[in-house]
Amino acid sequence: MWARRSDLPLDHDAPGRFLPWLIAFMVYLAALALAGMLLLDAMAARWDTGMGDTLTVQIAPADSPEKDALRVRATLGILRSFPGVARAQPIDEGRLMDLLEPWLGPGGATKDLPLPRLIDVELKPGAQVDAAALAKRLAAAVPGTAVDDHGVWLERLIRLIRTVEALATAVLLLIGLATAGTVVFTTRTGLSIHREAIEVLHLIGAQDTYVARQFAGRALAMGLRGGVIGLVFAVPTLLGIGYLATRMQAGLLPDVSLGPQHWAALAGLPLVVAAIAMVTARLTVMRTLARML
């Protein structure tokens, strides 16, 4: 109980009373930004290791199905002997129709429509396959082939994700700065409200650290209180977004959700914010008092 005793009636200050709510709002925003960042990171990691190891080879349709079959077999032969290729498998026509259906409508893709033949190529994990060299070699043997290197597309996607992540990091930093700024403001106000009492403490022989500890302790308590409130509001929001995302994504996005380590990081937010508040209050008091007698 004695530890909570304060020589200054800081709890009654009007400017300090809104601080927990402000911090709650900051932590709420920070939780969303952080969750988004962690999800994007998981997504990028998944694509980096998962889909980066595949290629698609496209073979332009020839004038007869027999010729098409020959061209596919020739292409498969080259692919299967190419270093770094783990598996090469033609996508059968039925599946191709299924893939095209969303664009062409049911029955839109008929046997009359000349369709390219596709070959799914899986690379050995970690193998650095030169897609350009492969494309050149295939084109020389079977004219009209094209290699679709998902790597290029993925690279762009991942770069986009990294940009969004950088933005989220900037948002987190700004939230931290805004919290610190608010604490500086309320601490300065508190110092001027309690100027008389602080002067008495000084004259009695209190060091600046003695006064600073009272402000820092209170900032810590308010930071924790506000942080927990913010988190309590953020959790249902995140769960709601997660639920909607799993219902919507339907295979469009890799299935990622917040894991235990992500929730732990989110639970750390109030602690980080409270620590920022405490350190800021202490530094503000020390700096302001150094200018007094």
């Binding site: 000084h202 004259l203 009695i204 022989g205 209190a206 060091q207 150094a290």
Partner: peptide, 13 residues
Amino acid sequence: RRQLPALRRRIGV
């Protein structure tokens, strides 16, 4: 300024 608290503790007012 840093030496003042120690001096002030020896003074009662």
